Computed example of a mutant assay.
Amino acid sequence: MTTDLNSRHGLNPAHSEVVEACKIIEPGKALDMGCSNGRNALYLSQLGFEVTAVDNNPGAINMLQKIVSEEGINNVEPQVYDINKAELNADYGFIACTVTLMFLDPARVEAVLADMQAHTQPGGYNLIVCAMNTPAHPCPMPFPFTLEEGQLRDNYKGWELVKYNEDVGTMHNGAQLQFATLLARKPA
């Protein structure tokens, strides 16, 4: 069902790490940070999450709003929001931030991570997937921001690391690069 909704609107399937995380995370209030056209937000909505979907691109938010209206979806709230501001105004049980950090202002990433953590409910989860730039795997893409080895893990001291790896993966365009993947649970 979820794939059909995304494909019907020309969207990619939900990110594989979002799909995996949802096998253990109970539906509740979720935030899709850097939602683009809403592939993850739509997936989460169909699982029963109340989703706030934010992106800095008004065109992407308008497209998601159109899908939400056409489909009569009442648990996705698309909003134009500059993630760099690090000014979330609600708390969430699940915050997904997949392939988003690398497009942010590098000087703001630490504040964004701290803001995500502060706005995660006790016992809630953060999922982050972000490109890395390491000596073994220099990043071939000119992203404004990339993580260094251990940097993401170090930002989540005191949280339970449900999943953490720094594996080489392939982007949509075929580029091979190293990604840090973190699923962390805030202490209850």
Rank of each mutant, 00 (worst) to 15 (best):
residue 1 M to A: 14
residue 1 M to Y: 12
residue 1 M to T: 04
residue 3 T to E: 14
residue 3 T to W: 05
residue 4 D to G: 06
residue 5 L to M: 13
residue 5 L to E: 08
residue 5 L to H: 06
residue 8 R to K: 15
residue 10 G to A: 02
residue 10 G to K: 02
residue 11 L to Q: 03
residue 11 L to I: 02
residue 13 P to G: 12
residue 15 H to G: 10
residue 17 E to N: 15
residue 17 E to M: 12
residue 17 E to T: 07
residue 20 E to C: 00
residue 25 I to D: 01
residue 28 G to L: 00
residue 28 G to V: 00
residue 29 K to Y: 00
residue 32 D to W: 03
residue 38 G to R: 08
residue 39 R to P: 02
residue 41 A to F: 06
residue 43 Y to L: 09
residue 48 G to W: 09
residue 48 G to D: 12
residue 51 V to N: 05
residue 52 T to G: 01
residue 54 V to S: 08
residue 57 N to E: 13
residue 57 N to L: 08
residue 58 P to V: 04
residue 60 A to Y: 11
residue 60 A to F: 13
residue 62 N to K: 13
residue 63 M to W: 09
residue 66 K to Q: 14
residue 67 I to L: 13
residue 78 P to L: 14
residue 82 D to M: 01
residue 87 E to G: 02
residue 87 E to T: 07
residue 89 N to S: 01
residue 93 G to T: 02
residue 93 G to E: 11
residue 98 T to Q: 15
residue 99 V to C: 08
residue 99 V to R: 10
residue 101 L to M: 13
residue 102 M to W: 04
residue 103 F to S: 11
residue 104 L to G: 05
residue 105 D to Q: 12
residue 107 A to V: 15
residue 108 R to Y: 03
residue 108 R to G: 06
residue 109 V to S: 08
residue 110 E to Q: 12
residue 110 E to M: 10
residue 110 E to L: 11
residue 113 L to I: 15
residue 116 M to R: 02
residue 119 H to M: 03
residue 119 H to P: 04
residue 121 Q to I: 11
residue 121 Q to S: 07
residue 121 Q to N: 12
residue 124 G to H: 02
residue 126 N to V: 14
residue 129 V to G: 06
residue 129 V to E: 13
residue 130 C to G: 11
residue 131 A to T: 00
residue 133 N to E: 14
residue 133 N to D: 15
residue 135 P to R: 06
residue 136 A to R: 09
residue 136 A to M: 09
residue 136 A to K: 08
residue 137 H to E: 14
residue 137 H to L: 13
residue 137 H to N: 13
residue 137 H to W: 09
residue 138 P to F: 00
residue 138 P to D: 08
residue 139 C to N: 10
residue 140 P to W: 04
residue 141 M to R: 13
residue 142 P to R: 01
residue 143 F to N: 11
residue 143 F to Q: 15
residue 144 P to Q: 10
residue 145 F to Y: 15
residue 147 L to T: 01
residue 148 E to N: 12
residue 150 G to A: 06
residue 150 G to K: 03
residue 151 Q to P: 00
residue 152 L to K: 04
residue 155 N to G: 05
residue 157 K to N: 10
residue 161 L to Q: 05
residue 161 L to N: 04
residue 162 V to P: 05
residue 172 H to R: 10
residue 172 H to D: 14
residue 173 N to W: 10
residue 174 G to M: 07
residue 175 A to M: 08
residue 175 A to C: 03
residue 178 Q to G: 05
residue 179 F to G: 01
residue 179 F to W: 10
residue 179 F to Q: 00
residue 180 A to Q: 05
residue 185 R to G: 03
residue 185 R to T: 06
residue 186 K to P: 00
residue 188 A to R: 06
